[in-house]
Design a protein around this nucleic acid. Structure first.
Length: 480
RNA sequence: GGUCCCAUCGUCUAGUCAGGUCUAGGACAGGUGCCUCUCACGCACCAGACAGGGGUUCGAAUCCCCUUGGGACUACCA
């Protein structure tokens, strides 16, 4: 079993690439096969080395790198299409010799006009075959002086059929298949040509790619046939969608894998989420590991409807994955991901129990824990709203008393201290919640925070008491 | 316009291939409650879908047809 992912290095690594790569990687692993990363950089205008590097990095980050790739090598290289020019040229010549392809000398201006005319006449667009019948001698002679492309000579009669692993047989009438350009005028192959040649030469047995390729698959099938090669198996996976069901796009969704990494999504959450787009595990728990996925995955079980990329669910999964980590592991992820700010690993390990249940993204940590590093401006208005029913003077007094209690009972456990604080509240005629709320706002700055006493301990009693006494002075009841 | 693909809760999906066990199951999000010093976590409960219409059949979410809706492709980009 040989699978592959073949992205073109033209911009940020795309979530769709990660999605399709996962399925290919998993299927190869499950079958003890090879997973190839091939760089389709035949578009010289748009391809960049930076983008290629980012693709490598993204797959490595996800934990699904190519077994064979430009960087790791392999027996079927080069794995960068721009370095395989001679191979494509040779194969194009073979096609021409066999009458399956021909040189086309039409200018792009003529092609443009042709398309415009066809559109205006509400006719299907496509090459009109003008250069089809140029004889070999003339073609060779013109090729010496004129720019040309090489086109596939599609047999207009008949139909082409192929089996899609997820949908069954797909039939397309050949009259609807265009004489696709195989070799561009710069000598580079188009996707269709390079793809088929490379997949065959690299021994790819299953082509698992996005659904958008279904319409051009007949061309690929024809190419396999023209070369006399056995056709790979095709499995077209659904396209990830925006909320409006259109193909996922930068404008309507973050599509860069790098963005998710920078947001503090864990690779295992991304993978788990990708797996859930079109595939489902035979279990009630939708949270699972890569290993569990590989053990059960089969491309024919992928559903055909286009899944809407729903970040809400990704957030939930990420929280689940974060909670599964040990404190030490979480600290490592935060540090390695660049989310630590001015926190050291040791400090992180110490305070993480306060935040682990509250994180959905690693990037949230520094903001959530900021009160431990810097004295926050207390949310006095929020506090006033939460303590509307409390007597202001009693509350102020109780807060001061609480500060004293915390000093006195310094070093003791949560239970005795909480008991003591409850007594303070009761003696002041206050609801326990009101006192704690005031202390919470004082210590953490906000009305929603990790538990009070552990926060006091993480902060230090001395600083906590300063903050508490400050709020006691500044407390103003709602409406006052 | 043409070709092709798709269609179950708001979202991801199970069930469809081998029609009955489906008064359609799970998850996320939402609502309510419990837990509780707040938030979060956790737990419990509630609400929520077979796009429509014809067939076939004793019986259809499942098979067939039509309609409708959505999507992709229609480049010397992939």
């Amino acid at each position: 079993m040989v699978t592959r992912i073949a992205p073109s290095p033209t911009g940020d690594p795309h979530v769709g690439t990660g999605y399709v790569a996962l399925f290919n990687w998993a299927w190869a692993k499950r079958n003890g096969g090879r997973f190839i990363l091939r760089i389709e950089d035949t578009d010289r205008e748009r391809s960049t080395p930076e983008s290629e590097q980012q693709i490598h990095d993204a797959l490595a980050w996800l934990g699904i790198p190519g077994d064979e790739s430009p960087s790791s090598g392999g027996d079927f290289g080069p794995y960068r299409q721009s370095e395989r020019g001679a191979i494509y040229t040779r194969h194009a010549e073979q096609l021409m010799a066999g009458g399956h392809a021909y040189r086309c000398f039409c200018t792009s201006e003529r092609l443009q006009e042709l398309r415009a005319f066809q559109k205006a006449a509400k006719r299907p667009t496509g090459y009109d075959g003008r250069c089809r019948e140029i004889d070999a001698a003339t073609s060779d002679a013109r090729a010496a002086t004129e720019p040309f492309v090489v086109r596939l000579k599609v047999d207009r009669a008949g139909e082409t059929r192929f089996t899609d692993l997820l949908r069954g047989e797909i039939v397309i009438q050949n009259e609807n298949v265009d004489d696709q350009v195989l070799i561009k005028s710069d000598g580079m192959p188009t996707y269709h040509m390079a793809n088929v040649v490379d997949d065959h030469l690299m021994g790819v047995t299953i082509v698992m790619r996005a659904e958008e390729w279904i319409p051009s698959t007949p061309k690929h099938v024809m190419l396999y046939a023209a070369f006399g090669w056995e056709c790979a198996v095709f499995a077209h996976v659904p396209l990830l969608r925006n909320a409006d069901k259109s193909k996922i796009s930068k404008r309507k969704n973050p599509t860069s894998l790098g963005w998710y990494r920078e947001q503090g999504f864990l690779p295992e959450a991304m993978l788990n989420f990708f797996a859930l787009q079109g595939w489902s595990i035979k279990a009630d728990d939708e949270e699972f590991t890569l290993e569990e996925f590989v053990a059960q995955f089969d491309p024919k079980d992928i559903s055909t409807g286009g899944p809407v990329f729903d970040m809400t669910k990704l957030d939930w999964l990420n929280g689940e994955k974060i909670r599964k980590l040990s404190r030490e592991e979480l600290a490592d992820r935060i540090v390695e991901g660049g989310f630590a700010g001015d926190w050291t690993r040791a400090e992180l390990v110490a305070v993480l129990p306060l935040f682990q249940d509250r994180l959905k993204r690693l990037s949230e940590f520094t903001a959530l824990a900021a009160y431990l590093k810097h004295r926050p401006e207390p949310d006095l208005e929020g506090l006033a709203n939460k303590t509307r029913k409390a007597d202001p003077d009693a509350l102020r007094g109780a807060v001061r008393k609480a500060a004293d209690v915390l000093v006195e009972l310094q070093g003791q456990g949560d239970e005795p201290r909480e008991a003591a604080l409850r007594i303070v509240a009761e003696e002041a005629g206050l609801k326990v919640g009101n006192l704690f709320m005031a202390l919470r706002v004082a210590v953490t700055g906000t009305t929603a925070s990790p538990p009070l006493l552990p926060s006091v301990d993480a902060l230090g009693v001395e600083e906590s008491v300063v903050r508490i006494r400050d709020v006691a002075e500044r407390y103003v009841p709602a409406g006052g």
